[in-house]
Simulated scan of single mutants.
Amino acid sequence: MSFMYFFWGFLSQWALGLVTSAFSTSGMTGSWIDQVPLLVGYLFHFIGFMKLKPANVAFGKGSISALVLILLSIVQMLLPVNSTLTSQPWWGSVLTVIVIVPEMFMIYYLCRGIGELAEAQRRPNLREIAARRWRLFVYCQVTIALALVTSIFANPSEPNAWGVVAGILSIVYVILNLIVYIMLLTFTWRTHKELELDSL
């Protein structure tokens, strides 16, 4: 069941995200609710890493990233939205960039750990899939980082080229992010089915 924690983590982030975004955009609750799916997902990931820690050292390192993400999610939930600091346009972008780093480490160690287990169990196809999933996640994170950087130069009152580029990159990110979630869901499900973890 160890790999299923990652499956449920990614599924909860995606499915619960759809529900909570509906509440926050309608104004029924505060924006803090958007962090709930992420927090739940990171908790699942942390448990999965801790259970898989004896199987490969990469999973132990991944648990540190998951723990950092849990703490960052709690911080984002507790930050006062209307304070002078958080109301500044650049604050959300800075916090998002901070979150990107541990997320990349978490997915890296997840894919690395699975890849090394797959290699040890002579499953080269699964090892190659792990490498591809990691590359796809990197492309997704680079896209959102570029969107955030270009949005800094965009002028909401007078649309310019930077605003157009930021808008296009944001759309690409939304599509790519959905693909990444689906790919990670199928990947962790396949890993659960194919890799042997009898001792865990």
Rank of each mutant, 00 (worst) to 15 (best):
P54C: 05
T188W: 01
T191A: 13
I171R: 14
I144S: 02
L38P: 03
T29V: 15
D198W: 04
P54H: 09
I74W: 01
M1V: 05
G60F: 00
F23G: 13
Y139G: 10
A66C: 08
L110G: 05
N125A: 10
Q141N: 14
S21H: 13
V75W: 02
E196D: 07
L78P: 07
N56L: 00
V68W: 05
V142Q: 07
H45Y: 14
S2V: 05
A118G: 05
F3T: 13
R133M: 01
H45N: 14
F187P: 11
F46A: 14
S31I: 12
I64F: 11
A130T: 05
G48Q: 11
P159R: 00
M28P: 02
Q88T: 04
F137H: 14
D34L: 06
A147M: 00
I98A: 11
S26H: 14
V94C: 11
L200W: 03
V81G: 09
S83M: 07
Q141Y: 10
T188K: 14
L178Q: 11
V99E: 09
Y5C: 02
F137G: 15
S151M: 04
V172L: 11
A154F: 00
Q121I: 07
P156Q: 14
H192R: 15
G92M: 06
L146M: 13
W90M: 08
C140H: 14
F137C: 11
R112A: 15
S73H: 01
E119D: 12
T84R: 15
L200Q: 07
V19A: 15
S63N: 10
R133V: 00
P80Y: 06
F153T: 06
T191G: 09
R135E: 12
I179Q: 11
A66I: 09
R135Q: 15
R127P: 08
F10Y: 12
L148T: 12
P37S: 04
T84D: 14
A145T: 14
L71S: 10
L197E: 09
Y42T: 13
G113R: 11
G163V: 02
N56A: 06
V180G: 10
V19W: 08
C140L: 09
G60E: 13
N155M: 06
F6R: 01
M77R: 15
I74G: 05
D198F: 06
M4F: 04
R122I: 08
A118V: 01
L185C: 05
L195K: 08
V19I: 15
A166C: 08
K61C: 00
A15H: 00
V174S: 15
G113M: 07
M106P: 07
F6E: 01
F6T: 00
Q35I: 00
G167N: 14
L148K: 10
Y173F: 03
S2R: 12
L200K: 08
Y108G: 10
M104I: 03
S87Y: 01
T191K: 12
R112C: 05
G41N: 03
L184T: 12
R122F: 06
V68T: 14
A131F: 11
G92F: 04
W134G: 03
L197N: 11
I64P: 10
V97C: 06
A22T: 10
M1I: 04
Y181G: 12
L52G: 00
